[in-house]
Design a protein around this nucleic acid. Sequence first.
DNA 1: AAGTCAAGTGACAGTAACTCTCAAAAGATT
DNA 2: AATCTTTTGAGAGTTACTGTCACTTGACTT
Lengths: 210, 210
Amino acid sequence: MAATSRTPSFTAPEAQPPMGLRERKKLKTRVAIRQATYRLIQEQGYEATTIEQIAEAAEVSPSTVFRYFATKEDIVLTDEYDPIMEAVLRSRPLDEPPLESLRLMMREALTSFATAEDEELRQRTRLMVEVPAIRSRMTETMSDTAKVLSQVLADRTGRSADDLRIRVFIAAVLGALREVALYWGEHGQEGDLITMIDEALTALEGGLRL
Amino acid sequence: MAATSRTPSFTAPEAQPPMGLRERKKLKTRVAIRQATYRLIQEQGYEATTIEQIAEAAEVSPSTVFRYFATKEDIVLTDEYDPIMEAVLRSRPLDEPPLESLRLMMREALTSFATAEDEELRQRTRLMVEVPAIRSRMTETMSDTAKVLSQVLADRTGRSADDLRIRVFIAAVLGALREVALYWGEHGQEGDLITMIDEALTALEGGLRL
DNA sequence: AAGTCAAGTGACAGTAACTCTCAAAAGATT
DNA sequence: AATCTTTTGAGAGTTACTGTCACTTGACTT
């Protein structure tokens, strides 16, 4: 959401055409639905919150909610990380080791997001820990991210994005990162997430010797 | 299923008490439901197959289906891998590098399963590729496996099973393995799965340098 | 400014996965 | 054979999600 308006440093500096009334309304509805959802979940929990309640709170019909978000989980999960991560990763020098580039990428993406939308990040992590459906959907989402990142690494190494080595590489890294996030969430979100990620990546780099 | 009856070499050799009629019937129902499900899915696809149809084909009521399996996905996914993997892993010498132990474990689990229930393995991999709900649930299932394996590694290294390093280790490995399976499934299940897993683990061992 | 077109919305009906409850049936136990 | 316990099926209910259709409301044309 807000990320979209905060990304000029990453996205190509194309001046967006000045949204018509229609698109402005659409965005407002989208935001309204998301905010209503977060509020209701905060108050009564995820499962207890129905689409009907969300629709009512956002002052739209249930049909409309489904028009904006494919599933209930998506209302919570939809984000704009991928383009940011892709841009950062592409901006790294070609001779930098891939793992190092990914480390920087994560650092960059997280710091910008964590300072701007800290509460949302925490809320989401909480849900990821507590609600299986959310966690599940998030994992699926990660495989989209994996595709994007694989493509970038493929471009940079001159291989196919479908190359097994690349896919395994990305899968291992994202699997590890997911686990760090889970751990952080399970332990009351204490400690510095970025440092923990750093350590995880260092472990991967060292060949996972335990 | 059949795995249960094929595990004396791994599980402690406790002579099981000779199942009464009740338990035998339960097992039969379980098997009937699973077989009916696999058959119907084969014929009409996963989404098109309803619980009602499954119930009818297995000659039980829908209620009963839900009593045996929590979700539709579970009918397909339920397996007995975990105890086998745990047993193999525990049987490895303590001074063996963990990654090596895991490699052996996978090799062992897969060869025994792939020869005994080859068709089921392939069918399941197919579903994992084609049906998001199945893939999703399978990933969740993997996190149970992760807990088991983490516990074993914890015991072997004298750390807590909740140790971040252990969790990251396992997550990275399982993430990589999942990707290999997916790749294998997406490419028509050609090539030797075990070799591919071996290579993935070697990549991890070498520090993911691409 | 009016008229046309396309996009967005709500009402409604329907499906299917699950949940809960309760009474009947069937196995286990004495 | 009588009793106790587990398992089952029937039925009613909830909720996420799909599809259709008529209505409204911005956008564009002349």
